[in-house]
Amino acid sequence: MICAILLIMPVMATYAGDKPLATVYSAQENGGYVFSVGNSTYSGTLHPGDRYPVSFTIDIPEDATVRYQRYYLYWAWGRKDQQAVYPAINATQCSGEKTLTGPAVRYVDNKGFSSASDFYSGMDAFSCRNLTPGKNTVTFEVANTGEGNSTFVVQGAGVLAVYESPASPPGQIEVREGCDMLYSSYGITPEMATSRMDFSQDIDMARLSKATLELVAPSGGYTRSDIIRKNAVGINHEQSGKLPPFITSVLSLVFPETRGKEWVDVFDSDQQQQIGIETRDVTPYLAARSNFATVQDRGDYLLLTNAILKVDYT
């Protein structure tokens, strides 16, 4: 049976950071998570009837219980001839089981101004049978079930499993999903092409052991032009256009707790491996409350789709 799609329609659709990621899971528990893109690569154009398979090998602790799991499909260029359309995508295999299932939720963005290439891009999140404790080797496969000449491309796929595990350290986790198309071009400044994430959970600083921020951005880090400082990721870092970048960097080194931290030229993808992933240890830069992260485009072009903040306590 084909499930109905919960389509997250754009309130605005531009290259600016106007589609903040939504919190889909937040908990304080002993546990952890696994995220993998498996052997996924760029698909090229998929026509009606074409399929796209990906294999994953995921290790879940033996004492774990999976609390949140999603398979993600990162797609772009949804069109029919030269008309922008939402692609018809269904999973034919999910968690290794044969099925015909639509995404549980779809996140979409586009550049938002009339041109010959203003096609939709997005991320579909599929809900399937949970992975089990131990080593899981599974296949995730989708098909273009559209009609006529409806086509799209797949940039890659991923799977996320958040688990509770008594043997794991205590801590907390916040998972965010969405699709925010960022590109500092066509009149969009870097300050405008910034997506901000405000994390709701307070941090017990006395028990803080380690904190990790993982971000997923299709196309992030991949550009045909050699742009210096083409993008940036910040944690509790207030953007300031009044000071030169060198001075701002020095102040961040001298006062890391008060000014947060910014990293530039982040993510890592290429023509075949198009899912940019960035993982940062943010332990020294967290505060007890009101923590936030930013992703800024400075000429790179990327889709911000996933963010995971994992905090471990002693």
Rank of each mutant, 00 (worst) to 15 (best):
V233R: 02
G187E: 02
V264L: 00
S114F: 05
N39L: 13
S185Y: 13
V85T: 12
E191V: 01
A167H: 14
Y120K: 12
V254S: 00
E177R: 10
S36G: 02
D297F: 00
D300S: 01
P218I: 01
P170C: 08
M12Q: 14
S252M: 09
R298M: 06
A211Q: 03
V85R: 10
V216Q: 14
G78D: 02
K80G: 03
D50C: 13
S249R: 12
D300T: 00
T137W: 05
T212A: 07
Y301R: 07
K230A: 07
A13P: 05
L213K: 13
S36A: 08
D226M: 12
R289T: 14
V154D: 08
Q28D: 08
V295E: 10
D109S: 10
S36F: 06
F255D: 07
D18L: 05
Y222A: 04
Y301H: 13
L243T: 11
I235H: 10
Y301W: 09
S55K: 03
L215F: 15
T139G: 04
R196E: 06
D204T: 01
Q93I: 11
F56W: 07
R129A: 15
C3K: 08
E257Y: 12
A157D: 13
F255K: 05
P169T: 11
N136H: 01
R106V: 01
M12W: 11
S252C: 04
M1T: 08
K135I: 12
R67P: 01
T139N: 08
Y68H: 15
Y285V: 06
F255C: 04
G44D: 06
Q239S: 07
I188G: 00
T248W: 01
N291G: 02
N90P: 01
P284V: 08
S240Q: 14
E147S: 15
T14D: 06
S43R: 13
V153W: 04
T189W: 12
F35S: 02
P170A: 15
Y120V: 11
K19F: 05
N130Y: 15
E257G: 09
P53C: 03
I228K: 13
